[in-house]
Design a protein around this nucleic acid. Sequence first.
DNA 1: TGTAATATTGAGACCGGACTCACAGTGGTT
DNA 2: AACCACTGTGAGTCCGGTCTCAATATTACA
Lengths: 365, 365
Amino acid sequence: MSESTPRRRDVTVADVAREARVSKAQAARALGGYGAVSDDVRERVMAAAEHLNYRPNELARTMNTGKSNTLGVVVGDIENPHFGLAMRGISDVAKAAGFDVILINTSEDVAAEVDAVRVLLDKRVDGLIVAPASRGDSEHLGRVLEAGRPLVLFDRKVDGLNVDVFAPDMTDVARESTEQLIAVGHRRIAFISTVDAEGPYREGMPLASSQVAERLLGMHLAFRHAGLCLNRDLIRLGAGDSESIAAITEEVLADGATAIVASDGLIALSVIETIQRLGLSIPDDVSFLMYDDFAWTKLTSPPLSVIAQPVYDIGAAAARAVILRIRGQVPRTSPEELKAVLVERGSIGAATAGDRQAMGASSAR
Amino acid sequence: MSESTPRRRDVTVADVAREARVSKAQAARALGGYGAVSDDVRERVMAAAEHLNYRPNELARTMNTGKSNTLGVVVGDIENPHFGLAMRGISDVAKAAGFDVILINTSEDVAAEVDAVRVLLDKRVDGLIVAPASRGDSEHLGRVLEAGRPLVLFDRKVDGLNVDVFAPDMTDVARESTEQLIAVGHRRIAFISTVDAEGPYREGMPLASSQVAERLLGMHLAFRHAGLCLNRDLIRLGAGDSESIAAITEEVLADGATAIVASDGLIALSVIETIQRLGLSIPDDVSFLMYDDFAWTKLTSPPLSVIAQPVYDIGAAAARAVILRIRGQVPRTSPEELKAVLVERGSIGAATAGDRQAMGASSAR
DNA sequence: TGTAATATTGAGACCGGACTCACAGTGGTT
DNA sequence: AACCACTGTGAGTCCGGTCTCAATATTACA
């Protein structure tokens, strides 16, 4: 098997040209499929190329065309199946359009994101698809636009950047699900998120993630519409490792929360573990709702109610958009197709009347 | 903010040289940090570069050095947190060593893997880290070696390829866990895997995944050691979508299996869902064991016993190895550190004595 | 002070393709 | 027969760096 492949020694157009007895220019034309080439020459060149097992050097090609036929993707946390699925959407569309995809993971670190963007720009990707780690830091992304490379964002928005963003609006679904919780009697609803913020939560405070901002806005709207007031002590940001999430969970429960909303899968895992450890039952003692629809949410007893996003489609739409932009066209954004929906499974129940509210002291921090 | 960045127009060494009033060669030397350059010239060049906001063109640099300072990673399914975590191990090590990492996903498709390897080779990555989709197809990987690029594999082995492989040996842990199952009375143990094979299972048949082969070998050893015989009707390969997994689960249960071993997370999800749907209880009615330690395995009741692999470390070790190879050194492989272990949580119980064995007819297929 | 050794420097080749330009051949017009 | 449009073709330039080589400048040592 390995005999059949002669030791390949970077064959170039010049080699092919020599073998086919034509000039380098003609060989390049035949191989590259541009310019005028007679049938006779084309055939000879192709045969020679085949014979020598010629493979064009993409780098050289990219260097003087400026095109690499490659899309660069930057995500914060590829371990999260959320992004894994989006990545698949991107890959599928890209492959169909003849683009390669390369991915860089940033661990949600802005400095790493800046690096990643630089690397991809240096590798001359034709377009970039980014799930920005921070809503505020847009300088490196601005640089992409300045360099004239198409850029689209997905999953989250960034302030002050005029680019396409593919992220379902979370306000509506957050409002809707909060209304549902209110309807079955919940008044003290906790929301726990990893997103960091300066100091305790206040309405309208700047948040790194636009998604989280929208979710909170939706909650506020629901409460206001019901003539109630959202208790902001129960909105807990900056939840980091599993210990801190567990601690926060205990606090909000002690503070009388009758329902907990987890902002992502990681939060959800720790919250549920804590609830189980405290010997409480879902949904009898506490109701539970989480963002993102992972397969394992169906396995717990009861299965968990979730807010599902069309993650694959988001990725696919983002890829379609950059590719259009690369081709010089302007994508027609139809955001109404990217809608998040509440999937009721069984972790939301009626609020337990008043009994546990009494037991907790208001937590100061 | 965007005012401060003057519209950058691909500044080259020639531009810098002109600005610093030196030759292109001297500017390049100062910038690239090679050759002899006087302090005076170096300072002027650096100042000019700073002033013009010079950024070297990595492509051009790669083209005539042959080095790109980039590692290419190819995995089958980045949606699987298993690979996500390994990727993190790779990234961390690479970053520390000054390498960039680019990733391509293949959806476990050999053709896509061949493409991915080609793309990365075309982009002139310095080394490749691959989790091969198929044990048998090694031609494209052989081509990497022929091209003289370092290559290491992780997670799975490939036949007839003399490269470093970073994958814990599964035989021991499979044997150990099977012995444990046998010890508590299980005699009919089912094993369900996605890995495809031709026809029903026979001992020693060729399997696409070396991991699965080792797991089965371990099971055989345990049975043999106990003087028992593994029932091969209960070894079910080629489980595809969730319906087929559910169907297989029902079949092996009807066939009297008292314990089910799931070969990966996806299988596990469907198996458990089916067990729950049938109204059976873990571990009272059926014992359950799965490969890979995902966070959600602690959430179910009871929490699931798993076989955990040091996935992060595997990725890190693989990255360290390619980097050494790139530098022309030979890595000292110490596989004993990469050991998979059985984590007992609560889904393994005593076999229910004989009652259910009777109820199932032997399923032919 | 002479000369060898060493440090700096600029010109230009080179990596592997794409592409410009001038020139030759072909066929159709008038 | 003279003119024009158009296809084929090869020589050579360019992309943006690295690197070789020969020339010049500086320094060290006898």
